[in-house]
Design a protein around this nucleic acid. Structure first.
Length: 571
RNA sequence: GCGCCCAUAGUUCAAUGGAUAGAACACCAGCCUUCUAAGCUGGUUAUGUAGGUUCGAUUCCUGCUGGGCGUACCA
């Protein structure tokens, strides 16, 4: 928003004799001005110490900046040249720029496929899937805001050994399975989770069971009659359950890909390229020798002739390019698969040359629990559903004494906000340590803290009779007070950063940049709210402050939207 | 063993190579006859270790220590 002003200042610095690339920084304290230029490199060129060169530069700048009317003064402070902006003109400029479209960037005419969630049927939807899903939806919204044509896709594993393990256990507990047919989807899925855990355990510990599971796996691929009914039924349970979760998380997909629709083609691709010696035979399996390229060797076709995840990914990529012809594909997948995906991308350069440079992996960090590592094999998984319910309970507790209506509705929105924020506020690549005792944070640097800002502003605007504040925003008459408080100026400057922050989040594929920014807006707003009266302020001040809170409302609502969080009117 | 990633306050997280390393939680002391106290104000506490590059290093490089992940028929 203030980039044109920055450009003007940079131009002035060049005219004053600065060379090389120039970057303006924000001074650490508001009383030090709004922008600053560090003179270290400049001083080197002049062969002076930085503080002296800053003084000289300020002298040389006087002529250049005379015509920039928004600039109040320029001052040398130690090794920095600090620029001080006129509060009134700045406020006018910033408030004028914050429209309901604020943050939206020009169309880029680029299609990006964002693949996320990727749960496997017959297994739990756990805390790791939750992070991936929340991250994927947020990234989608951010990239849309930045002008990309985003296609949301999901790739769900509905064939393979994990299914065989579950079905093996289900067959041995057929009575329970039969009894569940009219139960809730939650109960059904819980049963599947247990079955998977049992099957996985038997697979590890007992050779006979292992052989049986391997046999079932082959039957799944062949759609063998003996398991077809159970397979179809339980697959449907999982998918119904996933849909409920996606709706709850406020995400959706333009296309659901399944392993079952790509595995045949997967075998074909591997066989074709075996002839071209891209793959090799080893111990009865067809493998790719990544080790010759500094990567891992990976099995693509098992010794039973069945495709592994590796092979299926080749066919998936082919299908994704065929259907959507994207400029870029981002696979939002946990970090532990980084080296695996490097192999896949390398193989794809041969099997699908068009994919070169377009496939990418957004590796999100591990979600661990303070009480220990999470694993669906041990059966001690933290289910997404349980976590959400747990948070909801705590929020209802907090709301107990309030006289707000619709408590259930609001507490659900607030718990989802709390959950999403707690996952997104940490850098996307970094691990998150989750304390189940404390659940997610509900105060301080938390989702509810941010949502609370919007609720507070709504209340004030209601009382001020500005319900239609979006319309009113444009009909204002630029009533600005003569004295603008430092806190008001800081808040406005922060609001002006929104566009830059969105761009950074988009370029880095990292929603945490938005989350951290919104928190700083919220802190400044709460400062402002406590320091300065709004409705009881004098005429000009009151109008000005109402304009400010409308702008805060826009930025907070949009920013939270980018995190996948919808706000509530009151809380 | 080899490869990739990480190490900042009691805890969980920030910090394009630059101004006094910021927050939140927890703990202590205050603030509701005044726009929602899920809030605000004040207080205590940190860059794993040894070197190197630089005017300047939490940031870049190397060794060490301590963690996480990956490493053939799972996904």
């Amino acid at each position: 928003m203030l980039s044109s002003l920055k450009q003007q200042l940079i131009k002035a610095l060049y005219s004053a004799g600065v060379t090389g690339s120039i970057e303006l920084v924000t001074p650490p304290k508001p009383e030090m001005g709004e922008f600053a230029f560090a003179c270290f490199n400049y001083a080197k060129k002049l062969n002076l110490n930085p503080a002296e060169s800053a003084k000289i530069l300020v002298e040389d700048l006087q002529k250049e900046i005379a015509e920039i009317d928004i600039l109040d003064k320029v001052e040398a402070v130690g090794p920095y040249v600090n620029f001080y902006l006129n509060s009134s003109l700045l406020a006018e400029k910033i408030l004028g720029s914050i429209t309901p479209d604020y943050g939206k960037q020009e169309k880029k005419n680029k299609k990006v496929l964002i693949e996320y969630a990727q749960p496997n049927t017959h297994k739990a939807f756990h805390i790791g899937h939750l992070r991936g899903t929340i991250t994927g939806e947020s990234l989608s919204r951010i990239m849309e805001m930045c002008g990309y044509n985003v296609v949301r896709v999901n790739y769900q594993g509905d064939v393979g050994m994990h299914i065989a393990k579950a079905i093996w256990a289900i067959i041995r507990n057929k009575e329970k399975y039969d009894s569940l047919k009219h139960s809730s989807v939650e109960e059904k899925v819980q049963f599947l989770g247990m079955a998977y855990a049992d099957g996985a355990k038997a697979f590890e510990s007992d050779e006979k069971s292992k052989a049986e599971i391997v046999d079932i796996n082959a039957k799944i691929y062949k759609q063998d009659k003996s398991i077809k009914e159970i397979y179809g039924e339980t697959r449907a349970w999982s998918l119904e359950y996933f849909d409920k979760i996606y709706i709850k998380l406020d995400t959706h997909f333009d296309r659901l890909f399944f392993e079952s629709e790509v595995f045949e083609r997967a075998i074909g691709i591997v066989k074709n390229f075996l002839i071209e010696h891209l793959f090799a035979e080893s111990e009865g399996a067809i493998i790719y020798r990544g080790s010759t390229q500094g990567l891992h060797d990976r099995v693509f076709l098992s010794s039973m002739g069945l495709p592994t995840y590796e092979a299926k990914d080749l066919a998936l990529a082919e299908l994704q390019f065929k259907e959507f012809n994207p400029d870029k594909i981002i696979h939002v997948i946990a970090r532990e698969q980084t080296e695996y995906l490097r192999v896949i991308f390398q193989v794809l350069e041969r099997t699908l040359p068009n994919s070169r440079g377009k496939e990418s992996h957004l590796a999100f960090g591990w979600v661990s629990l303070k009480s220990g590592k999470m694993s669906s094999r041990s059966g001690q998984v933290v289910l997404a559903e349980d976590l959400i319910n747990d948070i909801n309970k705590k929020i209802l507790g907090i709301m107990e004494e309030s006289d707000i209506k619709n408590k259930e509705f609001i507490s659900e929105k607030v718990s989802l906000g709390a959950l999403k924020y707690s996952f997104l506020k940490t850098g996307v690549h970094n691990d998150i340590v989750f304390d189940l005792e404390e659940s997610v944070s509900l105060s301080g640097d938390s989702g509810p803290y941010l949502m609370y800002i919007v609720a507070r502003i709504n209340r004030i605007l209601d009382k001020a009779g500005s319900r239609n504040f979006f319309k009113k925003l444009f009909k204002k008459k630029n009533v600005l007070p003569k004295n603008i408080d430092s806190i008001e100026k800081q808040l406005l400057m922060k609001l002006a950063e929104f566009n830059d922050i969105i761009k950074i989040a988009c370029d880095n594929h990292d929603p945490s940049k938005i989350a951290q920014y919104l928190f700083s807006v919220a802190q400044l707003f709460n400062n402002f709210y406590h320091e300065l009266p709004i409705l009881k302020a004098e005429n000009e001040d009151k109008k000005f402050r109402i304009e400010i809170i409308k702008s805060v409302h826009i930025v907070m609502t949009k920013g939270l939207y980018l995190l996948g969080i919808s706000t509530v009117k009151e809380m």
